[in-house]
Every structure is written in structure tokens, then in C-alpha cells.
Simulated assay, not measured.
Amino acid sequence: MQHIFDEEIGKLSDQLKVMREARSSLHGEALATQHKTTVQQATLEELASLTLERFWK
């Protein structure tokens, strides 16, 4: 009986490890996406500013 419990605990441990790795990977992707979005927004604002400056010249 103890052997069955040990096997199940081992399986659950493996699943938890996979889930933690997936969470870590997704967190990294989310941070990269957030940074990319921030850079894109700053670029758009800079372009808009340049466009307005040219308009008034």
C-alpha cells in the first residue's frame, strides 16, 4: 500500500514541477510582452510628437 502512495506522490511531484516550469516560462513571456508594449507606446508617442511639431512649422 505504501508503494502505491509513493508512486502517486511521485507523479504529483512531477506534475507540480512541470506546472512550476510552465508558470515561470509564462511569467517571462509576460514580462517580455509588457516591455515590448512599453517601448512601442513610447515610440508611438514620440512619433506623434514629431508629427505635431512638423504640422506647426
Rank of each mutant, 00 (worst) to 15 (best):
M1R: 03
H3Q: 12
I4F: 12
F5N: 09
D6Q: 06
D6T: 01
E7L: 05
E8N: 06
E8C: 04
E8S: 03
I9R: 04
G10C: 05
G10N: 02
G10I: 05
G10P: 04
K11P: 01
K11V: 08
L12M: 11
L12C: 12
L12G: 10
L12F: 14
S13E: 00
D14K: 06
Q15G: 01
Q15A: 03
Q15H: 01
L16E: 03
K17G: 09
K17R: 13
K17E: 14
V18S: 06
V18Y: 11
V18M: 05
V18A: 07
V18R: 05
V18H: 04
M19H: 06
R20S: 01
E21G: 00
E21M: 02
A22P: 00
A22R: 05
A22Y: 14
R23P: 00
S24N: 12
S24C: 13
S24V: 11
L26W: 05
L26N: 10
H27Y: 14
H27F: 07
H27M: 02
G28D: 10
E29A: 04
E29R: 03
E29M: 07
A30F: 09
A30P: 02
A30V: 08
L31S: 15
A32T: 08
A32S: 04
A32E: 07
A32D: 01
A32V: 04
A32Q: 07
T33F: 11
H35N: 15
H35T: 13
H35Q: 13
K36M: 07
T37C: 07
T37A: 15
T38W: 15
V39D: 03
V39A: 03
V39S: 01
V39K: 09
Q40Y: 13
Q41H: 15
A42Y: 09
T43K: 06
T43C: 05
L44W: 03
L44D: 07
E45N: 04
E45F: 02
E45H: 00
L47C: 09
L47T: 02
A48K: 05
A48S: 02
L50A: 07
L50W: 05
L50F: 04
L50N: 09
T51V: 13
T51Y: 13
T51W: 12
L52I: 08
L52T: 14
E53L: 11
R54C: 00
R54Y: 02
F55V: 07
W56V: 10
K57H: 03
K57I: 01
